[in-house]
Design a protein around this nucleic acid. Structure first.
Lengths: 223, 223
DNA sequence: AATCTTTATATCCTAAAGTATAGTCATCCT
DNA sequence: AGGATGACTATACTTTAGGATATAAAGATT
């Protein structure tokens, strides 16, 4: 992952011309001064946005009420007044249903999904590189939905249980619906040995039988 | 879904200014004249790209070899010479590892995933609206990965098998790792009846036992 | 009215899964 | 060197799963 500090000021093959979304009004709401100011600085350095920054949800809502809708609002997920995704709804209403995105350093892919389902225009992890963040912001301001592909895929990370090699091999067999006999043949072991592994692996996974073990393995992307 | 024909020529609050990626060289390879020309037209109407169009992979590779790397190449997935995702590799090599994306009207979310895993910079369904497509192209040319969120989520659609209500209820029990006896108790039926349902449902799902039936159900999001 | 499907029950039997206990052998640890 | 741990085998036994077959009532279809 890139770091927010890595700023790329100019692009190699750029011939600046007119495009269709340049000067935008963006609101950044985050209780960390550093994050707020860094993002604001990048956007303004790109000359592509007028950035307003506030440090909690109330101030964000107030700002939109007083100065009109922003082209894009970035809300920190862990921020005073947010209260999970409820703050998102408040902000969307206050911003005249213009795009509102969630910004977070810690949230899980599941929360990102929930945010999109709740009407967010995107989800921006704070681990995103500066250049990518600028692209994402322009993208969302254009009405698109942005969720970093790599971030969503990390949901598929293996949640390792303390299974031995053998147990993992046997579990793989279970997931394919094989019988103990078949697994034994495949691994060149005795059927009784497979039974043993099935039992211990079920205990470790807190499953009461092979079928449940297979389902748990599938759920937790173990095999 | 929007249609490709819906073009938005100007934005409401636009004050054209300098941004950092305007005149780009883009190569579109698609064997359908209409698709090729429509996308090219949109991009050029936006004044943001010099577009080259070809109608098969060989011509695309040749074009990149002769005139140098493009900022972005769009390859139709079902096109002469593509051969699945092998064409992607060829094109990436020919384009000096500059972004290459896949364009398709029919491909599944799984293929989109595979394409990204194989190094594609993005996946653009032909059902994408014109404005979104332009945003996506700019986004990918900037080095980001684009996969439409809604498209990936549609993987979660239920693939219904011809199971009766009872069989579905029993299958649900299987997925929870319950024994026939437990399922019988839950549904207020005899154990033998459950056995019958398990057998017929396994036949319908082409599963050889309850564990495999449960896994198939989970895979196809049946239960 | 005849037929098909779904649901339900019943027996009988075999195969597979799961439990318990015990022992061998190798490896890793400190 | 001693001791824990993991992988493997073995015997014996119980429970569960699964297959074959037969019966039958309710509901939909034709």
């Amino acid at each position: 992952m890139q770091n927010i500090v890595a700023l790329r000021t100019s692009d190699s093959a750029d011939t600046p011309k007119a495009t269709y979304q340049s000067q935008m009004r963006i609101l950044i709401a985050d209780d960390h001064d550093l994050v707020r100011d860094t993002i604001a600085m990048f956007l303004e350095a790109e000359g592509m946005a007028e950035v307003v920054t506030v440090e909690d949800l109330d101030a964000a809502v107030k700002s939109a009420d007083e100065t009109g809708s922003f082209d894009l609002v970035l809300l920190d997920f862990n921020m005073p007044g947010m209260d999970g995704l409820q703050g998102l709804e408040r902000m969307k209403a206050a911003n005249g249903n213009q795009p509102v995105a969630i910004l977070s350093g810690t949230a899980s892919p599941q929360i990102a999904k929930d945010a999109i389902a709740a009407g967010a225009s995107g989800f921006v992890p704070k681990t995103l590189g500066a250049k990518s963040m600028v692209s994402a912001i322009r993208f969302m301001a254009a009405g698109e939905t942005f969720v970093p592909y790599a971030f969503m895929q990390q949901a598929d990370a293996k949640t390792v249980a303390n299974l031995t090699m053998r147990e993992t091999e046997v579990l793989r067999g279970l997931c394919e619906g094989k019988s103990n006999k078949e697994i034994a043949r495949d691994l060149d072991l005795q059927e009784v040995t497979i039974k043993l592994h099935v039992k211990t692996l079920c205990r470790k996974l807190n499953a009461k039988n092979r079928t449940q073990a297979a389902m748990i393995a599938r759920d937790r992307k173990l095999v």
